[in-house]
């Protein structure tokens, strides 16, 4: 990792010095132990802030989209010949590049507007799993050595194997190396062993009865406080105005009525058909620990089962919901 970090900084510095990127999105150390936080770098001197470790959780493609679309908006009133191009650099693991592929497929920006610094990934730590492993104790100090987390809490020292607190989406990740990149740092990471059981959890859930599934769905959604962190963190959620915020008509109530929350979540989830890259950002940012992945992974599974498509894994594939094949699944169609 340290080696990767060193190379990453060198590469970032070079890109900024050579003015090949105008801004670079990466991670820097957070203010709390065992955290990393997104950072924005515009000068070569700042490159030394960059880190790459198991605490880098967010999908930075979100910021790539934001920065580029802000730039596009700022250029709207500029005469075509005076328009400036802006290139955003991003430190990207597998899922981040999948989101970028998705953005490119959905024509959000051009390939030449983003410079991808690919990094290998072996999973990131799920903060909530870590808290649970520590039984809620506050982390005072911590370090990661190899596969072992050494943590000091108010109650004392504790060792936790990294594997035990990796995010669920990382354990079963199939695409932990960048799909596309302009520069690759380090060697590709070995495949994640859990990838073969990618859909095991969904399959278990499918076996439950309708009522059991409904109970689980409603229980999970009852935790939601409608802070919209899931939506805001999601690189695929980039509608200029979310349906929740539309007022004419108002599609869904804004209060804490259980059905309103369910409808909000249901709609948002369903907007992810063929568009969820399983980066886990929504799950990691949720303050209440709603099990969103149980539902998103089902969409992923269905799209793969039905149409043989996985979101953002190839620039050549059209998005699954904007294409069709003659022999697409139609056994669900009612035929009296």
């Amino acid at each position: 990792m340290e080696n990767i970090e060193k190379k990453l900084r060198e590469e970032a510095k070079r890109l900024l010095e050579e003015k090949r990127v105008d801004a670079l999105v990466g991670f820097e150390a957070g203010t709390l132990p065992l955290t990393a936080t997104p950072c924005f770098i515009t000068s070569p001197e700042e490159a030394d802030r960059l880190v790459w470790n198991a605490f880098c959780s967010q999908n930075l493609a979100k910021y790539v989209h934001d920065l580029i679309s802000q730039h596009h908006n700022s250029q709207k009133r500029v005469k075509p010949e005076d328009r400036k191009k802006k290139v955003v650099g991003v430190v990207a693991r597998g899922c981040t590049t999948r989101s970028i592929v998705l953005h490119l497929q959905e024509r959000q920006y051009g390939r030449d507007e983003v410079t991808i610094i690919g990094v290998p990934c072996e999973g990131y730590v799920d903060r909530k799993a870590l808290t649970a492993a520590l039984d809620g104790a506050d982390i005072r100090e911590g370090s990661l050595t190899g596969d072992r987390l050494d943590i000091l809490t108010a109650e004392g020292k504790k060792e936790i194997p990294l594997q035990d607190v990796l995010a669920d989406n990382c354990r079963t990740c199939r695409f932990n190396n960048p799909i596309i990149h302009d520069v690759m740092i380090g060697e590709p990471a070995p495949a994640m062993p859990g990838a073969v059981q990618e859909y095991a959890e969904v399959e278990e859930f499918e076996k439950l009865s309708t009522e059991e599934r409904w109970r689980y769905f409603t229980k999970e959604m009852s935790k939601c406080i409608r802070c919209y962190a899931c939506r805001q963190a999601c690189p695929s959620c980039y509608c200029p105005t979310c349906f929740v915020e539309q007022t004419q008509p108002q599609w869904v109530g804004l209060g804490e009525d259980a059905t309103d929350t369910q409808v909000f979540q249901l709609m948002r989830l369903f907007h992810m058909v063929g568009r969820c890259v399983d980066c886990g950002s929504c799950v990691s940012v949720c303050p209440m620990g709603v099990d969103l992945r149980k539902f998103l992974k089902k969409l992923d599974k269905d799209v793969f089962d039905f149409f043989g498509n996985r979101a953002g894994v190839s620039l050549d594939d059209p998005p699954p919901l904007s294409t069709f094949k003659e022999d697409d699944k139609e056994d669900f169609i009612y035929n009296p």
């Binding site: 997104p38 962190a229 805001q232 963190a233």
Partner: peptide, 9 residues
């Protein structure tokens, strides 16, 4: 504010 994702947490 750059990294703020505008959630209400």
């Amino acid at each position: 504010h750059q990294k703020c994702i505008a959630c209400g947490t």
